[in-house]
Structures are given as structure tokens and as C-alpha cells.
Design a protein around this nucleic acid. Structure first.
Lengths: 102, 102
DNA sequence: TTTATATATGATAATATTTTCATATAATCA
DNA sequence: TGATTATATGAAAATATTATCATATATAAA
């Protein structure tokens, strides 16, 4: 059985979802802008945005027919912490056969 | 292309690997003990331990014919931080269809 | 020095996740 | 209202990850 922490890592272990979080770290963007900047296919983007919304990592507001997404600032703080920390292990992570050779 | 942060989340997004980290959080254990306590199949455990070692999240020392694993204390600190933080989102994570219904 | 215990390795099978595809909805504009 | 733009939904196909299996190695004890 997966607990909340497992699910947390699952949410961020997806490349598209993580890239969305990174894009939203410093500015809010609508779905179309995210699509253009990240080159994620439209329906995938929509699925991933819904996941991030469900988990409350991001939030959304309507603006005309656009939906503008922004990061939850507590999520941003934690991600910043992780990024800072991971830099220490960067070289090791990149040479781990099990994580890379696939 | 995956960067170090992507790989970091991949490493922890695996249930077995995360359970190993949790077990090692407060005590050191040899492979056999981890196997018995977590009921992970032997070869899987070995693969996952190697991954965690490659990434320097854990370390190992020999003791006779056993190998005793322990957590890197910086990894422990970060994981503790994440766990503390994730509690806030627990209810949301557990009800995210995309992360759960599969 | 043979045997038993503890752990590791690599290839394939099983399973889970992600992408694609067809289509739907919602808001605005002509 | 009908067309257009922006985004969402759900199922099946494609792909990636994890588990299993057969086997190897390393250390210690008999």
C-alpha cells in the first residue's frame, strides 16, 4: 500500500509534471503557454495539470477562456530545498546505472 | 533529458527503495535483516541497495560475510523534511485519481 | 577444500506508467 | 446561434519500470 510520501515522490518523478512545476516556480502561466514552452502534447499537459491540482501543488484561476496556473508557495519552498540539496549528489545520480540505463 | 533532480525523484519514487530508506532512518541493518523486515525478494533488494549506494543515499561496511547498510545523514535530514511537509498534503495525495487509480 | 551462508549480476517476463487518439466541454466572438 | 479557441476526459496503444529467474561471487566455517 502506498502512503502519502510514496505518492508525493510519484507525483514529482514524472518528467512532464516536474517540468511544469519548474516553469511555474517564478511565474504564473496558462495551459497554452505551458504547452508552447514545454512542448508537452495538449492532452498530456491537461492530465498532468489535473494531477498537480488534485495534489494542491499548483492552483488555478480563470481568465476569460484561459486557465492560469500558479504554484502553491509551500510547494515551491520544498522544491527549492530539494533542488539545493540534490546538487550535492548530482554527479552520483547521473552515474547510477539503475536510474539511467533505461 | 533527465537532470539530477528528476533522477532524485525517480530514486525515491520506488516503493522498495523508499521503504529501505525508511528502515535505515534510525538504525543500520544488513541485507538479510532488510529482506526479512521488508519482505523484499533477495535479488530485488540487492538491485535497489546498489541504486541507493550509487546515489550515495546510503553507505555500507563489511562485517564478516554480512554487509551492513546505513543512511547518509544528509539524506535522512532531507527525507525528514519531506515527510514533515507531505503530511500537509496527505489527504489530497491520497485522493488524486491519476496517482492512485493504477 | 568442500559446503553453507550472504549477497550480487544480468537477461527476460510481468506489470505499471505514459502517450496517443478520438472526442467532449466551456467560454468568447462573429 | 454557429464557429473558433482553449482546455478536459477516457480508453487503448506504446513504452518504461519492476519482478522473477538462473546463476555468480565472496566469505566463513566445517
Amino acid at each position: 500500500m502506498k502512503d502519502a510520501t510514496d505518492l508525493f515522490f510519484d507525483a514529482f518523478a514524472n518528467k512532464n509534471r516536474f517540468d511544469i512545476i519548474m516553469k511555474l516556480r517564478n511565474k504564473e502561466l496558462c495551459a497554452g503557454e505551458l504547452q508552447r514552452e514545454l512542448k508537452i502534447e495538449q492532452t498530456n499537459l491537461s492530465h498532468d495539470l489535473r494531477c498537480l491540482l488534485n495534489c494542491r501543488f499548483i492552483k488555478v484561476r480563470k481568465n476569460g477562456r484561459k486557465r492560469v496556473y500558479s504554484i502553491n508557495h509551500e510547494t515551491k519552498d520544498l522544491v527549492d530545498e530539494v533542488i539545493k540539496h540534490v546538487k550535492i549528489y548530482e554527479a552520483y545520480l547521473k552515474t547510477c546505472g539503475i536510474l539511467n540505463e533505461r
